Simulated scan of single mutants.
Amino acid sequence: MAQRLRETVALVTGASSGIGEATALQLAADGATVAIAARREDRLDELARKIRDAGAHALVVVADVSDREQAAGCVETTVGELGRLDIVVNNAGQMLLGPVAEQPAEEIDRMLALNLQGLIHVSQAALPHLRSAAQDPPRRVADLVNVSSVAGRRANAGAAVYNATKHGVGAFSEALRQEVTREHVRVSLVEPGAVATELLSHNRPEIQEASARRLGDLDPLRAQDVADAISFVVTRPRHVAVNEVLVRPTEQQQ
């Protein structure tokens, strides 16, 4: 797939670590110019150096996409600096677990604002530009990829709010797909199972310990595995839309 994305521009949110970082590197290797967005500027600067050292181009955009104005600004900065927008990967999110009765309000608010509202804010701001790119060379198709989770397919005790946000991402993605697919804007949902990233480390210590016991010696996905799936989705021919990808570790049962 090398250079299949030449002359395109991709925006990846949540790019400072994990799946977002791996996806930005992969899309750059595929030939895209990549705008990398997140809150942690130092991490973004390091990632931009990696992309540039590999001979590709990167734009650092510091933003918290849970804020509507910053989400819109993230998109407009990308288009203003790079001239177009062909691919958006909505990856920014947090997984804060725990029983509903005990979950701090700030954790609930943060997940709703980032996992769901932030994704919607970015999507809304990006749509005019994706529609425009879908009419123009080099591909005459555009892609919006929303990173969800296995948690968007099934509900589990101890993850109610996270489940709610990811089920919401799935519903939003399918409804939006129906609205724009005839314009050759492809909307895709990527749902990873357990992935070896820092996602769990943002939880309270007791939640981290419980999660580690639950996962046991499971061999998880790597971030690159998910990046490979996203790369596959966005490099399909114009007449092919891969709307949903569920990818689990081989040993994961649920």
Rank of each mutant, 00 (worst) to 15 (best):
G55N: 06
E179Y: 10
H129Q: 10
L189W: 01
L27K: 07
A2W: 05
E21V: 04
G14W: 03
T33R: 10
H167D: 09
D64H: 10
G73I: 01
L130Q: 09
A35C: 06
E179C: 10
R6C: 08
E174R: 15
V75D: 01
A133N: 05
A155K: 06
P220R: 02
L119R: 09
T8D: 03
D217R: 06
A38L: 03
L200S: 12
V12M: 06
I51H: 13
R153D: 01
T197Q: 06
V88F: 01
A210N: 04
E209D: 15
A38G: 09
I51T: 08
R213Y: 08
D219N: 11
R154V: 14
A71T: 07
D42W: 00
R52H: 01
R154D: 04
R186T: 08
V161N: 07
E183D: 15
V185A: 04
V226S: 01
D109Y: 01
V122N: 05
D136E: 15
P104D: 09
L59E: 15
V150T: 13
G14Y: 04
L112I: 15
L25K: 15
E191Y: 05
L215E: 04
V65K: 11
G98L: 09
H202C: 07
R49V: 03
G80I: 08
E41W: 05
V60P: 10
A142L: 05
G31E: 05
G31H: 08
G80E: 12
L176G: 07
G98S: 12
A29N: 02
L246E: 02
G18K: 00
V62W: 02
S201N: 14
A28P: 15
R182G: 01
Q117M: 12
V240Q: 02
L176P: 11
A54Q: 08
E106S: 12
I36H: 10
A126E: 09
E21Y: 03
L116E: 01
Q94L: 13
S188C: 07
E191M: 10
